[in-house]
Design a protein around this nucleic acid. Sequence first.
RNA 1: UGGGGCGUAGCCAAGCGGUAAGGCAGCGGGUUUUGAUCCCGUCAUGCGUAGGUUCGAAUCCUACCGCCCCAGCCA
Length: 572
Amino acid sequence: MSDHPSAGSNSSVEKPAAEKPQHFIQQIIRKDLEAGKVEKVVTRFPPEPNGYLHIGHAKSICLNFGMAEEFGGVCHLRFDDTNPEKENEEYVNAIKADVQWLGFQWGGPVRYTSDYFQVLYDWALHLIRQGNAYVCDLNPDEAREYRGTLTEPGRNSPYRERSVEENLDRFEKMRRGEFEEGSCVLRAKIDMAAPNMNLRDPVIYRIKKAKHHHTGDTWSIYPSYDFAHGQSDAVEGVTHSICTLEFEDHRPLYEWFLENLPVPAKPRQYEFARLNINYTITSKRKLKQLVDEGHVDAWNDPRMPTISGMRRRGYPPEALRNFCANIGVTRSDSVVDVGMLEYAVRDHLDKNAPRAMCVLRPLKVTLTNYAADRVEEMRAPGHPNRDDFSERVLPFTHTLYIEDEDFREEANKKYKRLVLGKRVRLRNAYVIEADEAIKDESGEIVEIRARIIEDTLGKDPADGVKPKGVIHWVSATHHLNCEVRLYDRLFSDPAPDAGGKNFLQAINPENLKVLENCKAEISLAGAKVGDHYQFERSGYFCLDSKYSTLEKPVFNRTIELRDTWAKIQNQQ
RNA sequence: UGGGGCGUAGCCAAGCGGUAAGGCAGCGGGUUUUGAUCCCGUCAUGCGUAGGUUCGAAUCCUACCGCCCCAGCCA
């Protein structure tokens, strides 16, 4: 059967000029709607609550909820909870929060595959009565042997021809918990010689005496993914069941159940390529390992590619959605450059984050011609390109801090910062000129003595000697002490996951730098968790939701500004 | 020497028989009190390879090559 329903030829659809190209899922849905095959689009996002959602799930969420949104339908949130051994409620709650944070709302209640355990059980009975399923007593090793290999057909299980009565009886005993785990399973009777391994009498129910986070001890048998997914879609009236490519081989099985069971609808499955990003891993199992072994703080560690980690890091939900829109949806395997994600984050933050100044590595500057008790209130725009942001007030005083790296005793003309004997513009304030660098015993520069050039607020020096550049600063007496955490990529290998590599060895040992003596402008005292700021000339920052306190604010660097200066330096 | 997919620029990706969109990255330039943003320009004589069909092929056909997925009582 064809992947794409051979839609009635509706060739007279005029193509609107200069429209955004539609990806194949959009094309399929639009045709289904136009052909009247579907009245209202229903999709679903079906995570298994066995870990936290990551950037790859964001793509799926944007696709599934996005299609519902775009075509006036709904998207269900359904927890695919058929394996109680790995799932729990912490994950359920985290997943719900993540989906909502991304800005999506599911249609109707939160659903669980476990809501359908009774129907699924009844349908298993139906299959048995039709002679389409049997209880098989082969142990796992034997079952593997009987299954055959990729190139050799399997053999029929010796239990394949049990009578309906015996199957009914044994399945009932499975249900009642009378058999040990692993002693038997219920299998669909399809074809042990099928070239598609999924059709070689797949397991549809297995015994698990674990307590289920949602159904408690009600069941001692649980349906397999294959036996649950399509039927759940059918029960919910899902029209387009979108999943990743590795499930393509399962589609014939998905359809086999729909055809052999009295289901209320016939949903269709479509597959797209899952997201891969370089320098990143998107495997729940490996992400869990990073957490369990303490390589990171938690699932929501700002270095994690989890949705909660990116949230804590300061990635705005809009950036994630834009990113997903930018990468598209196709069926070809690909590895997206992490630069695309970073672009989306910078792009949104640049347009929306208020500006502030914060000195990360302070170097004291004393203004010898500025009275020690004088305080001027400089006014600075909240955003250079928007007038709907409120102004900030910056106290300007006799002693200031500038960035350690913004001063050099001598430098070539490419260095556009403060140089001994030269001028620089203090952003939103005066032009100053450096007269002297004071060093300690070890030769370390500990203070700069400088002068302001009078009458340079909003204008160049009257003598025509223009400053070489602009640097940020903070008053040494009127500021907010804070801690800043600089994150770098978690992995230094573009493909930490590839081949037989051990991804733990690809961990970047310098993925976090904590600066405890940072000086922020006082307006930042009002920062709240969830606010985003651009620390000018530095990057985008936000308060850390875990470590920040009123006494000691902790800012996470979400991402650096694009830095062509660093690029120039690296080229030399 | 099974089955299912996928190959368009460094990366992502349009294209659906009429002569290679767009974005990211890069490069060059302009504006700028952020080395940011913004703006302009540049970046595939060629679509995995080789044949074929056609007036015309990235699009159709054939063969080959490469990569991904499948042998859980995971999803």
